[in-house]
């Protein structure tokens, strides 16, 4: 099975110079947690997710803690978020982006999603322009129907 048979042709994206505030608005309204980041030619240059915001807003030692209650000053988290709000997504996005082509196999896409702990992968054309996305839940659906390895 190829990516083109499992992909969603949603080319919604956030531009590299749009702000974290704009990104948050789009995600809230679309009920999604991440979006491809594109340039003026709609080439995918990164991926921005809520995880990237959290990672940049909490202290670097956060991942070593068992619980957020160990953070001595939550005010610091709030202040950091306020500072990030008007910054462009390019400052915080994951780059280079991990993407697939529509003629890649779904097995390859699943491998990338699992290895990199991602929920969504952008699908790009030969010029690296966004043509859709593939998500974990769609691959699970394909796998559960036995079509993933066909």
């Amino acid at each position: 099975m190829l990516v083109r048979e499992a992909m969603i042709r949603d080319v919604s994206a956030v531009f590299e110079d749009e702000t974290i505030e704009t990104f948050t608005h789009i995600c809230l309204r679309k009920r999604t947690a991440g979006l491809p980041v594109v340039d003026e030619y709609y080439r995918v240059i990164g991926f921005m997710s809520e995880t990237d915001i959290i990672r940049n807003a909490v202290p670097s030692y956060f991942s070593l803690l068992q619980s957020a209650s160990f953070i001595p000053d939550t005010q610091q988290f709030v202040q950091r978020l306020a500072q990030m709000r008007n910054r462009p997504v390019i400052d915080y996005m994951k780059k280079p982006p991990i993407a697939v082509a529509d003629d890649d196999t779904v097995m390859y896409a699943a491998d990338l999603l699992i290895k990199n702990g991602l929920k969504t992968l952008p699908v790009v054309d030969e010029q690296n322009r966004l043509i859709g996305i593939v998500t974990r839940i769609h691959l699970i659906h394909a796998a559960s129907h036995g079509t993933i390895s066909e």
Binding site: R4, R9, D10, G132
Partner: peptide, 16 residues
């Protein structure tokens, strides 16, 4: 809309 056909792509601006 996307379910209608793989020939339709979407990029709507989501409003409040």
């Amino acid at each position: 809309l996307r379910e209608v056909s793989p020939l339709i792509s979407t990029s709507f601006v989501h409003v409040e």
